[in-house]
Structures are given as C-alpha cells and as structure tokens.
Amino acid sequence: MYRRKLTALGYVQPEGINLNDDKSFKNLIVWLENQKIRSYKIEDRGPINDVDSRDWETNFIKYCGQLNCPIDPKDRPAVVDWLLGLAVHFEYQDNAEKFKQETSENVLNRRSSAPKVVNTNPLDALDFQSPDFIEGVNKLAGLLNINPHPDHLVTLQAISKMVKSRLNNEALQNPGEFVHQGKPYPIFESDLGFETGDFILNNAGKALRLLHIHDLRELQTQINECIVAVQLLTANPKTDTKLGKVGR
C-alpha cells in the first residue's frame, strides 16, 4: 500500500517493507528522518538512529510528538502512511520548480520515446490452457507411455522429467546405463510395514515409500560424487622415492 509513495521518494526497496518486522520498520523511519523529513538537527538524530537501543520505542513516540503526528505511534500502518505523506510534502517543497515543469504530456513523450523491448521467446505467446495445448500434451504423454493426469500441467511436468532423465544426449548415447532392464519390481505386492486399513491408502503408501527410497539413493549418489571430487582435489598419489615421502 506504500509502494507508490516509497517509489516517488526513491526508497531502495519500495516493495520490501514489512511493518511487522522491527528491523524493517525502524530502518524505514531512520531513512525518512535522515533523507526526507529532517525534523531533528544531525547531531540530535542519535536516539532515533540507534535502532538497537532499548529506548527506541520511547524515542520514536517523542519523535512523533515533535512532528505533531495525530496518529497513535503504536499503529504502525497508519503512522507510516502519515510519515510518508509528510515526506512527499517536503520532497515537493524542496523541488517545487522541478515538479511544476512536469506535465502529463512530458511523461507521455518520455514513454513513447523509450525503446520497446520485443519478446522473441515463442513460449511466452502460448496459451497453456487452450484445448489445442492440452491435446498436444496428452498426445505427447501417449507417445512416451506416460499416464495422463487430470491436470495437464502435471502431465507436462512428468514429460519434462522423463525427457531430462531418459532423452538427454548422455542417455541416448548410453541407453543401457539409464534405461533399467529386467523384471519390474512388484511394488504393490511388497510389504508396506504398517497397515492403514484401506487398500488404496496402502498402495499409495507403497508408492510414496518407493519414491522416498529413490530420492535417498539419488542423494547418496550425489554425496559420493562430492567425496570423489574432494579427494581429487586433496589427494596426491604420486610417490617421490628420492625424497622418501609420499606427495609433495
């Protein structure tokens, strides 16, 4: 709700204000006083600038009184809105002549003279909810033997995952290392380890358990790769018999 005022004042992160966060709130107050409002003399701004002080809230109440703020200082949204309005007022006073020269015509002329960015990505022009797109996703899923999901975007995620893992250049060159051969694992005939009392929930639990095991195996593979990479950087198997020691 403060974005326009903060943008007009030149605040660094106009969309990153969180009034429930003490640090964000205090930093905004300090910035407004030091850069825009300047109610105190520089040498008198210490109490309001010391955001880590235990007395900061008391000093802030005094600060609001100094400004004759009609808002309860404990009502952060309202008091910030009032302070921003005051800061905009002072900003206009300091640059009145500059703002008087700004007209709607000048603004429109600047916008029209700005270079137009032409988007060349064809994916941005796609309608992901159109019947043709949905039909194309389902047809592609059929070609890859992927069971379609009621939500076509979920089906598209499955297609993307399969393409990355099975149809990349490395997999196409060495299909035996990526496409598992042999008898499929009888997942629904395995023991779940516990009983839910519902056949469908039992099967869902078995599927989730298998997926979890798959994720753990992939994590272990990544850990092993990290260990090998570190060993390559730290190990030096060369033996210098002249020096009578291993390594450098």
Rank of each mutant, 00 (worst) to 15 (best):
Y2E: 07
Y2H: 10
R3I: 14
K5W: 09
L6P: 15
G10H: 00
Y11P: 03
P14D: 00
N18H: 15
L19V: 00
N20V: 04
N20Q: 06
D22N: 12
K23Y: 12
K23F: 14
K26Y: 01
L32P: 01
L32M: 03
N34L: 06
Q35Y: 11
I37L: 09
I37E: 05
R38K: 13
S39E: 10
E43C: 04
D44P: 00
R45K: 01
N49Q: 06
V51P: 09
W56E: 05
T58H: 11
T58A: 12
N59K: 00
N59R: 01
N68K: 08
P70G: 02
A78V: 01
L84F: 03
L84W: 06
L86P: 14
A87I: 03
V88I: 12
E91G: 10
Q93R: 15
Q93D: 08
N95S: 03
E105F: 13
N106L: 14
L108N: 14
R111M: 11
S113H: 08
T120H: 13
P122A: 03
P122W: 01
L123W: 10
L123M: 14
L123C: 14
D127V: 01
F128S: 14
P131Y: 08
P131H: 07
D132M: 15
F133L: 07
L144I: 00
N145M: 11
P148E: 04
P148H: 01
P150G: 00
T155Y: 02
I159S: 07
I159K: 07
S160A: 13
K161H: 01
M162E: 09
V163C: 10
S165N: 11
S165L: 12
N168F: 03
N169L: 14
E170G: 06
N174T: 10
P175S: 10
E177A: 13
F178Y: 11
V179R: 05
H180P: 10
Q181W: 03
G182C: 01
K183H: 05
P186Q: 09
S190V: 06
D191Y: 08
D191Q: 09
G193R: 09
F194S: 00
T196E: 02
I200D: 02
N202W: 01
N203D: 09
A204Y: 04
R209Y: 09
R209A: 04
H212A: 13
H214K: 11
E218R: 10
L219R: 15
Q220K: 14
Q231K: 10
Q231E: 10
A235L: 07
T239M: 06
D240F: 02
L243M: 10
V246E: 10
R248P: 15
